[in-house]
């Protein structure tokens, strides 16, 4: 089901990965992340294997690595931390390119970098192949509480309505000579945020009224379908792969 949006993180397609029911993908992604996180940081080969596993999924879903790389930049702030650690951590040091770097710091930095990057890549793979709407359907299938699903569904829709409203209010302020670059003019922006909050609250009441009028009783209609055991098996192959990698590392 295409949401019809041009979503930043979603890459519509019609591959085996795209067609997989969202609940299967959510469970598989979670399992892979758990495997990655529980891998000891010194097992460099294991991380390579995880990456290889992900690359197979990308090939299957026809998601270009460049597309993922651009979006993976979101972890940049964490990478900064990883780069700083080798310089700041104590303990025995090693020489590298003329620098004295902390050994534990290097390992800790690597740990953050490798696990963080893999985690981001797994999430990106999930979001690239699953529309936000399908993701919600999947979570609903996984018995996430109805209230959470309702809130997320409404957010998906009203985030755009409210940001459009905020943009209109901003234009109206600017047209009357408001220039929020100066600190003493921040007051107007703050009041606009307050107004927006009240408006959103009132809209919330009207939306609720309209929903009740159409027979809403507290749960969203379930739009999903149950996944067959065979689909679950197929969808969980990457997770099983990750578990195998983790198992061999821990035993070996």
């Amino acid at each position: 089901m295409g949401a019809g949006h041009a979503h930043l993180l979603h890459r519509p397609g019609d591959t085996a990965v795209h067609r997989l029911p969202a609940q299967v993908k959510v469970v598989a992604a979670l399992a892979v992340v758990l495997c990655v996180v529980s891998t000891p940081r010194g097992e460099f080969a294991a991380f390579g294997l995880y990456l290889l596993l992900l690359a197979c999924v990308w090939a299957l879903a026809r998601v270009p690595p460049g597309w993922l790389a651009k979006r993976a930049l979101i972890e940049a702030p964490f990478v900064v931390l990883a780069v700083v650690l080798p310089f700041t951590a104590g303990g025995p040091t090693v020489g590298l390119l003329g620098l004295r770097l902390s050994e534990t710091g290097l390992l800790a930095g690597w740990n953050i970098l490798a696990k963080g990057t893999l985690g981001v890549l797994v999430s990106l793979t999930l979001s690239a192949t699953t529309s936000p709407r399908d993701l919600l359907v999947g979570l609903q299938r996984l018995r996430v509480p109805a209230l959470v699903i309702t809130i997320a569904t409404l957010m998906l829709r009203y985030l755009e309505v409210i940001s459009a409203e905020a943009a209109r209010m901003r234009v109206a302020r600017i047209c009357r000579g408001h220039d929020p670059r100066f600190l003493w003019q921040a007051g107007a922006t703050a009041r606009a945020v307050g107004t927006l909050f009240i408006r959103s609250y009132e809209r919330g009441e009207r939306v609720h009224l309209a929903m009740v009028s159409r027979g809403w009783t507290g749960t969203m209609p379930d739009a999903g379908r149950a996944a067959a055991p065979r689909t679950w098996l197929a969808g969980l192959v990457p997770a099983v792969g990750a578990a195998l990698v983790l198992g061999t590392t821990l035993w070996g």
Binding site: M1, T153, L156, R206, V207, L209, A210, M211, S213
Partner: peptide
């Protein structure tokens, strides 16, 4: 209702 944005709340 008067404002369709109040009535239409689903993603599609």
């Amino acid at each position: 209702f008067q404002d369709p944005d109040d009535q239409l709340f689903m993603p599609t």
